[in-house]
Write a protein that binds this DNA or RNA. Structure first.
Lengths: 211, 211
DNA sequence: CACGGATCTGAACGGCGTCAAGATCAATCT
DNA sequence: AGATTGATCTTGACGCCGTTCAGATCCGTG
């Protein structure tokens, strides 16, 4: 384990600086948030000079892409776990949605980087829509829940609708304006499930508990 | 009209610099995007020194707040117009949703600033959830469409669900990955309506055209 | 007309992303 | 072995950024 060193006992050449930089960036994200994530800070955290990252990434954006990639992998794992834990095919959708939003809540800074990195790109980021990724996981779940009679276009549209709804809820649930309501419905997770139940594509046994 | 001047024929004191700065910021947003929106660039565009804005705003964030405020007002107007144009109370929801997403598409940079400015705040931004604002407009529309029997909490949850869905779709529709699908359903607006129709709280006469 | 307060400028500070030139080291060739 | 090459890292610099502070300018009031 030589990632975080003190910059004195390490040789001139780092050995695995690329990975170390990505991990340093994640460390900064977790501890200080996205606004503190400068290229110089990452280099500092990794114990190298400000120019060193340029031998592994074209610019700051490429480093953020690498960080985002890790995030998409983590998110995919969370969603897969939630899907596999669900008993019902239809309820799997809801569990996946809850896992998605909870990931965003648990790693807000990383989640932000994941979307910021992909915003000004022509294609969606690698980890998001490439095969065997988070997006396809949702699409497969919808295909399975819909059955063979539903046309593929509706599956795709439903997937997009669910993804948009999940992303919107993920961003919105960070706002503190809803704190009172969260408490009223009995905590964060209940709030998520209640909102998702109003979204049409996330079936739940008892919508609100009040109806 | 003395907002954009050439910095030579203007007197030492600007007269209405606060408003001029906000307008300069909006001009930069429209023409060069959010990444070009530095405080110095805004001051340059307004024809004043880099330190001048500090006599009208505490820091850059406060200037962005003012810009965002204008955005929320504009968005509210768009949504109000869409609501008033709808014939049916239930379809009003859909028209409001379409107007919301279309606003985000027409003013992507401003829309980004509106949410960036409100992200790290305890309360939601002034223009968003204060009474007689965009959020309350949606809530009123839901209350009206739901009728008097639906409990207030469900109205609130449905409002949140719709807002999240609209925001998610607004951000997502900027990604170019869905371009093929947009073409397949017959254009941008049809795509929006198709996705919204899958979201449960936006009723439409013919969901996809295929079903 | 004096003057106090609001407004704006000019110069400066540290931090940022980025680049070019040089130092260092591992691997390869002779 | 010794020389060389190419990858990696450092140093130092550039221009831009947000922000601050002392001083210049001007408006309104006494």
């Amino acid at each position: 384990m030589r990632d975080a060193a003190t910059a004195e006992n390490r040789p001139y050449h780092h050995g695995d600086l690329r990975r170390a930089l990505v991990e340093a960036a994640r460390r900064i994200l977790e501890s200080e948030g996205p606004s503190a994530l400068s290229l110089r800070a990452v280099a500092r955290e990794a114990g190298v000079s400000p120019a060193a990252p340029y031998h592994h990434f074209k610019d700051k954006g490429e480093l953020l892409d690498a960080v985002a990639h890790v995030g998409w992998d983590m998110l995919g794992d969370s969603m897969r776990a939630a899907r596999d834990q669900a008993t019902d095919v239809r309820h799997a959708m809801t569990e996946i949605g809850v896992a998605y939003v909870q990931f965003a809540q648990q790693h807000p800074a990383l989640y932000r980087v994941m979307y910021d990195a992909s915003r000004d790109k022509v294609a969606l980021p690698e980890g998001m829509k490439s095969e065997d990724s988070a997006y396809c996981l949702v699409q497969d779940a919808f295909r399975l829940a819909a059955g063979p009679d539903v046309p593929e276009m509706d599956v795709e549209l439903a997937t997009i609708a669910a993804w948009c709804a999940g992303h919107g809820l993920a961003e919105m649930s960070a706002f503190h304006q809803f704190d009172a309501l969260k408490q009223a419905v009995g905590g964060e997770e209940n709030f998520l499930r209640a909102v998702l139940s109003h979204m049409g594509m996330f079936p739940t046994p008892h919508p609100t508990g009040a109806g």
